[in-house]
Design a binder for these strands. Structure first.
Lengths: 136, 136
DNA sequence: CCCAGTTTTTGAGTTATTCTAAATTCAGAA
DNA sequence: TTCTGAATTTAGAATAACTCAAAAACTGGG
């Protein structure tokens, strides 16, 4: 099955009409990209799609978010929003040198607290920030 | 010792010239406020200071940040920036009902991971999001 | 093929912040 | 004091990242 069809199916599966623009955006953000910004999505789609407006980029990203197949992550250091197709519970590591954002599976981090006594916790967001160690 | 003098001393201590505007802003963000936005700082200062520009509000907040006596926190849900005078290691709890932000001392949260093997971690930012339990 | 509903587009509007350059104020020297 | 260069403040323009509104284009079911 080709990539095109994979995306069309994924969109339909999520209850989204598979328009040409959505396929182009979806293909990039759901299969190819690694935490892109809206601008980067536009740039990437521009390379393979004749003409798409910024509003459609945002509309589509929001549609994917609402459908539960994409997540917007607001980075606390820069304030930029990037889109994350990893829908498993996970946290983020920000490499301060390269600016790269890496996913960290939730099970790699153990978290203990007693907030549950007082709150119904709906979500925990963690950002680790640092630099890669120079091995010696 | 009066409040005015406390702030003047705190500013000087941090190596910041104590101008009238900085005293007014500092007094609010370092002593009175609880996670205010820049707009809220302006509104509060306007009540006690004849005339201050938004640029000065931002300039001063940045100056305090660089001096290490104030922290900007970018909230991941709204994207708004609030200023935090708590310089101890701590995390944040966001009450989704009221929008309130509460500080959580770092020692109330135990965090275990093996990222140290690969990274020099400079900072860990955690946002808990949820609602207060209705006691029954 | 037709039509109601959905999607896309353009361009203007918004919000929060930053920039620029001029005006003001300040701290230390004389 | 008075001066002077540096620091600070200001207004207002500029920017970035969206969001909105209304018209135009498309789509899928009948």
């Amino acid at each position: 099955m080709d990539v095109q069809q994979t995306i069309i199916d994924a969109l339909k599966q999520a209850g989204i009409n598979a328009t040409a623009q959505r396929i182009a955006v979806g293909r990039y953000v759901l299969l190819e990209a690694d935490h892109p910004t809206a601008d980067e999505v536009k740039a990437a789609v521009d390379k393979v799609f004749p003409k798409i407006s910024m509003a459609t980029i945002y509309n589509t990203l929001h549609t994917l978010e609402k459908a539960g197949i994409l997540r917007a992550v607001k980075l606390p250091h820069t304030g930029r929003v990037v889109y994350d197709r990893n829908m498993e519970p996970h946290y983020h590591m920000i490499d301060e040198e390269s600016g790269t954002l890496t996913d960290l599976e939730a099970q790699r981090v153990k978290l203990q607290h007693e907030l549950d006594k007082e709150y119904d916790i709906h979500e925990v967001e963690i950002f680790f920030r640092g630099v890669r160690k120079t091995d010696q």
